[in-house]
Amino acid sequence: MTRLLIVDDQVLIRAGLAALATAAPGFEVVGQAATGEEAVALAAATCPDVILMDIRLPGISGITALERILADASDESRPKVVMLTVFDLDEYVYDALRAGASGFLLKDTPPERLLAAVALIAEGEMLFAPAVTRRLVETFAHQPETKREQPASLTGLTERETEVLRLVGQGLTNEQLARRLMVTTATVKTHLNRVMSKLGLQSRAQAVVAAYESGLITPGQAGPEPSHP
């Protein structure tokens, strides 16, 4: 059972998402919040598996709420956070990825795809709408070098771990990684967990950012986007 917290300042959107998840097997809505402050409090109180959160909220932003939620949670209870946006070219996409968002979905995503996406996120994958992925690449490509934060050193990674990070940065899922490297998905998860531990990363999306910022991938070199439900 995937426990969901839904955060949006529009009551109709909150109610619609809650009704959709409640009617679907395998999901439990543990709370609804209208502001970032409420989201932080409810996340601590309910320990959801996945949070669907509007990137633009009154009061503290969705990004600030995301940072607080992840900082307050233990490794065992840290939720996956999916940011919801109306705009496929939202200016805050890159900042949210850096803060630890596990993915992005547009608010007009069809219901069946949204539920499939939540299930995918709960399993530890990441998910971006195609236009949002393009926004990530374009944002990094046009960001002056002097404004980019210094990336974590990759010198502590093994050759295989570096390859896993590069492929994750290209958007491959664990299953696609396993086929590419001719190993099991369990082995892929082990390598990725080691990469994230060594680099101090909290989400797969942060690993994508690290792959770009370290120079493993440059805009225009990423592979084809994986197909998602």
Rank of each mutant, 00 (worst) to 15 (best):
A39L: 01
A71E: 14
V11M: 05
R134K: 13
P144N: 02
V164W: 06
A23F: 01
A34S: 07
P229N: 14
F128L: 05
L172Y: 14
A210G: 10
G36V: 00
Y212F: 11
L120H: 15
V188Q: 04
V50N: 07
T2L: 06
Y212R: 05
D95G: 13
F140W: 12
L154Y: 00
A101Q: 08
I55N: 02
V82D: 10
E37G: 08
E145V: 05
A19K: 12
S227Q: 06
L12D: 11
T35N: 04
G31P: 15
V164A: 08
T35E: 05
A116H: 07
T109E: 09
S197T: 03
G59S: 07
S197R: 12
T185C: 09
G171A: 04
M53C: 11
A65C: 08
I217P: 11
T146Y: 00
S153K: 06
Q32N: 13
A186P: 05
A99K: 13
L154W: 00
I51E: 09
N174Q: 07
D72A: 13
G100V: 06
L201T: 01
T46H: 14
E38K: 04
Q10H: 04
A41F: 07
S61P: 07
V188G: 05
A73L: 10
F87H: 08
L57Y: 10
A210D: 12
G31K: 08
S77L: 15
T155Y: 02
T64Y: 02
G103W: 15
I121W: 15
Q202V: 01
V50P: 05
R204D: 01
A222S: 15
A65L: 08
Q150I: 08
L120S: 13
L165C: 03
T35F: 06
L157M: 04
L105S: 15
A24Y: 03
Q170L: 00
K147N: 05
R204N: 03
G215P: 09
L115I: 08
N174K: 07
D54F: 04
P226F: 12
I217D: 09
R166I: 01
S227F: 01
A101I: 03
V30D: 01
L154Q: 02
E159Q: 03
L12I: 08
L12R: 05
L57Q: 03
V29I: 03
C47R: 15
R166W: 06
Y212T: 09
Q221T: 13
R135A: 08
L5P: 15
V30Y: 01
M83L: 15
G200S: 05
P130K: 07
A39I: 00
E161W: 11
A131V: 06
G59Q: 07
R194F: 01
E213K: 14
S153V: 01
R204I: 00
R56K: 02
V137D: 10
I55V: 02
Y212D: 09
A117G: 10
P144F: 00
A73H: 14
R179F: 13
L106P: 04
A23H: 08
R134F: 12
E175A: 14
D54A: 03
P144C: 02
T133E: 15
D95V: 11
M83Q: 12
V208D: 10
R166E: 03
Y212N: 07
M53Q: 11
S153G: 03
K107N: 14
S61E: 06
A222Q: 15
L199T: 00
T35C: 04
Q206G: 08
V132L: 10
E123S: 14
Q221S: 12
L181M: 09
G156V: 04
M83E: 14
